[in-house]
Structure formats: C-alpha cells, structure tokens
Design a binder for these strands. Structure first.
Length: 476
RNA sequence: CGGGGUGUAGCUCAGCUUGGUAGAGCGCUAGCUUUGGGAGCUAGAAGUCGGAGGUUCAAAUCCUCUCACCCCGACCA
C-alpha cells in the first residue's frame, strides 16, 4: 500500500516535492541542485517547447545554437552583468589534462558570446534586425535548489535580437512578453500579470526588465518569464555598430527574453491538488487514459480489444491517448497512478460497461465521474478536454482574484503577507523603501503592472507620493 | 561561510546508549488466488553498514581523521 501524498495545507513545499517525484516528472541527480528529467516530465517540456517554438517562428524568429563555454573575459565586458552573475558561475579551469590559459565559464546566459558574435555579423542597417532564438541548457550555481523551480542546470530558450532603433527594440521586448503571456494563459492555463521590474529586481545588464508573474497554489508569486530591454549596453560593451542609411555609425539596440523548465514547476503549483498533478490538456503528454477492467484471462483480450477500438477514432482526432494494459496492477492502483500524473480524462472500461454499450468517464480537475454512451465518445472526449482547459484557467483566475488584496496600511500588510497572496500597494519608487519591505517581510515588488489601478497615491511605507500601485508578494 | 543533523538492501528507515558474524516496511522475482478506488498468501533474491585509520579476541556500534548530503541562516530566477 503506497502512502498518501502529503496534503498542500499540511506542508506545501513537501507536497510539491512529492508530486514532482511521484508523477514521474523528475528526480534529484547526484550533483547537488541538478535534476534528471524523466520521460514523462520531458514529454511535458517538449510539448511546451513545440508550442513556444511555433509562436517564435510566427513572430519572425529563427533558431541557432551558440556554445556552452564562454571565455571568462567575455563576462567581464559588461560591468553590471558580471557583477550580477559572478557569484553563481561554474568555471572550467582544466581541460585535456592541463590548466587552461584562460578559464571558461559555463554559460549562465548567452548575451556575451552572442554579442561577441553579432559584432562580426553586423555592419550595415541592412543586416538588421537579427531575430534569433536558441534552445539550450545554462548553469547558475544556486544556493537553494528546488526541482524545476531553481536548479543549477536548467533548460530554457533565450531570444537575442538586434535592432537599428530604440523604438524597434522596445516593440520587440513587449511583443515577446505578450507571446509569453499568451502561452502561459492559453496553453498552461495560468493567468499572469504583465509588468516591469524595479531596478532592484531587473536583469544584470538590462535597461529594463519586463516580466510575467503567476500566482502559485500557496499564494506566492513565480516569475514565469522575462523580456529584457538591453538598450545599447551590450552593443557598447562588445563594440557592435552599424552604418545607418544616412551613413552614420550607430550602436545597435538589443533585447533578450527567456522562459525555462521552471514553467513545469509553475504548472504543478498552479493547478495541482491533494491527489497530485493536474495538467492542462493542451500540454499534457497523455490527454486521455483508458483503464481496462477484466477478470481472468478470458475477459482480458475482449476488453483490451474494445479499448483499442474506441481509441482509434480518438487518435485520428489527434487526442493523445494511452491504454494502460499493464497486467501487474489492478484498476484501483491505476486510477490513483494516473490521477497523480494529472491526466485530464480517464475512461474506465469493464464487461459491465461493454454490455450496456457504455464507458465510465472520470474528469481529473473536477473529480466528476459519469457513465457515457460509447457512440458519442470521439466527440465527448475532445469536448471534455476543452472544458478542462478553460475550467483550469478560470479556477486559477478566481483563486488569484480571491488572494489579491488592495492594501494601504503597512502594519496590515506586514500582518497579512505571511498568508500569501498579491498585495496592491503604493510605493515611493526608491530602492531604500524596497529594501525596507524586503527586510521587514521577505516580500518583494514583483512588478509594476501595466494594467489595473494606475491612479497615483501615497507610499505604504513612507507616505511619499507614488505614481501607481505595485504588486507585492513573496516569491519563489 | 556560521549553527544543527544524517550517511545501514533499489527506496524509507530501525539497530549504535550497554561491541558478539545484518533487520523491518515498501519495491523486486516466482507461484497460486485476485482484478469496478492504492490486492492477499507462500517462497525467494538483494547490503564490502559513506571512506580511511585506530582500540579490541571481536566494531554498523567506541575513538581519530576524512568525504558527501540534508535542514536553518546568509545569498539568489
């Protein structure tokens, strides 16, 4: 008898860890902070990759690949960049049995090697824009690793674009932020808030960092994607200039944007419940599982054959369907197993159902179970998948609304922040106030949102004037 | 880097105080019975007790050194 999952209310971090491992998404690797992504987890990531990659291509980007190792001197060319990343670098000092002349850094992100390359690729305004994305692994030596949310090595995509004008670069930054928001909401079924980071929270080397923030099941915030306006910082550090149509030499304008395997963690925490994972149908590796129920060797082939026949039209409609024909487990075990793995719909088929021309259907996110006619099945299942996709999004949206508070009193904020949630409050715009809030509560300004109450007011801490409300929350 | 803790079967852990030739549950293998919400019984395979040294007739257990990992703090996508 397998033990029950730790409940979310009892110990949320432990629940998360157990779900990730028991749903077969990933496990810890021998090197601290690195993880083994198992086939089921990787399949989920592949589905995310595919959807994102299509969106990148549709917005005019192409894929390329830059190397893992970067000469250490490259990192040092942009002052803020090196300062920000130095503490978390892994460095190769020996290779081929010898100490290297210059150490190589394992990329924590690829701006430096890419801008070193772009210098050679860009001479004229006719060479612009460059719209490149790469799918890669990067390494940041984190103190507190957690499966998917913060691992020392992680998989991601990083877009690096070069433009002739500030305006064009800025448009690109917002366009890709929009792509991320659309992906999060329409594919992951996770509502996000778009906004801009404060200087304290922005990317090392960026002029400004835009982000999407999502609320997890414990009310904490997760930075789900970032899009950086790099201005001319990297162009200047790497001497990337072009000749304009007027014959003037100009520095190039840059952007970079990325999302990572952290998004897998976002799905787990945005939708999961005490039974385990709940996957949005559009990304689920298995959208529908069929569990055959039979007694003895005589019934087995009959039931399995019926399963195959009902799976066929569903497969033709593009439903990712799996028949669980494992003989060593009984149905009850399989029900729990697939619920834990978050499969959106389960069809149960036994002799009793077949005699009536019916099947039993269980819907993961609502917990509903019903008898359905066999005939309409190939229409019914896709309909359930769509209902689940929108239902999950709506549920997450309602949860976020219920846990978002307008707050104008600092004592009230300090008292309530430990219960989680987003707090909309006024901030005077200073680094000092931001540090004070972090020190008092461990909460940070997640972003200055684009939408919502944009009226000016008075800072919750100092009472000084504030341009608009910002989002305060504890974050992963 | 400070404070605390743990290394024993594939996994989770007991055994250590008080030294005496290695245990449980889960998992795994085989067989039988089962199969509509995490099956039962029987039999079996499986561990240089993190590593090195020492004390002793005898070390998982006591001593010394060492390595690794975990938790809290600092730090951070």
């Amino acid at each position: 008898m397998a033990e029950k999952l730790t409940s979310q209310s009892k110990d949320y971090p432990r629940w998360y860890n157990e779900v990730v491992q028991r749903a077969d998404l990933a496990e810890n690797a021998p090197v601290r902070g690195s993880m083994i992504i198992k086939p089921y987890g990787y399949s989920l990531w592949e589905n995310m990759q595919r959807a994102l990659d299509d969106m990148f291509k549709a917005t005019g980007h192409v894929n390329a690949y830059f190397p893992l190792l970067i000469p250490e001197s490259f990192l040092k060319k942009e002052a803020e960049h090196v300062e920000g990343f130095a503490p978390e670098l892994a460095v190769v000092t020996h290779a081929g049995g010898k100490k290297l002349e210059e150490p190589y850094v394992i990329r924590p992100t690829s701006e430096t090697i890419i801008w070193d390359t772009y210098r050679r690729w860009i001479q004229s305004y006719r060479d612009l824009p460059i719209l490149i994305n790469q799918w890669a692994n990067v390494m940041r030596w984190e103190m507190r690793p957690r499966l998917f949310l913060r691992t020392t090595e992680f998989l991601w995509q990083e877009g690096h674009t070069a433009h002739a004008t500030k305006e064009e670069a800025h448009e690109e930054v917002l366009r890709m932020l929009g792509v991320y928001a659309k992906f999060a909401e329409e594919w992951m079924a996770v509502p996000v808030i778009q906004g801009v980071k404060t200087d304290r929270e922005k990317f090392a080397g960026a002029v400004s960092t835009y982000c999407i923030e999502a609320m997890m099941g414990d009310g904490k915030s997760l930075q789900a994607g970032t899009s950086h306006d790099l201005g001319q910082n990297f162009a200047k550090a790497f001497e990337v200039k072009y000749l304009s149509s007027e014959g003037k030499e100009e520095y190039v304008w840059a952007t970079s944007w990325g999302v990572s395997t952290r998004l897998v963690g976002a799905i787990v925490m945005a939708h999961g419940d005490d039974q385990g994972l709940i996957l949005p149908p559009k990304l689920a590796p298995v959208q529908c599982v069929i569990v055959p129920i039979y007694r003895g060797d005589a019934e087995r082939p009959i039931v399995l054959d019926a399963c195959e026949r009902m799976a066929l039209p569903l497969r033709e409609k593009g439903v990712r369907i799996h028949i669980d024909n494992r003989d060593q487990y009984r149905p009850g075990y399989k029900f729990n197993d697939w619920e834990q793995k978050g499969v959106p719909v389960r069809i149960e088929v036994g002799p009793r159902d077949l005699a009536k021309g019916e099947v039993s259907i269980a819907i993961r996110h609502s917990g509903e179970k019903s008898q359905e006619k066999l005939e309409g099945l190939s229409d019914r299942i896709p309909a359930i998948l769509e209902e689940t996709q929108t239902g999950l999004f709506q549920k997450a949206l309602d949860f976020r609304a219920a846990n978002t508070h307008v707050c104008d009193d600092y004592d009230e904020f300090k008292a309530r922040i430990n219960d989680g949630g987003f707090f909309l409050a006024h901030w005077d715009g200073t680094r000092e106030t931001e540090d004070q809030i972090k020190k008092d509560t461990k909460a940070t300004i997640r972003c200055i949102p684009f939408e919502g109450d944009l009226e000016p007011g008075k800072c919750i801490v100092t009472g000084k004037s504030s341009a608009q409300r910002v989002i305060l929350a504890k974050a992963y």
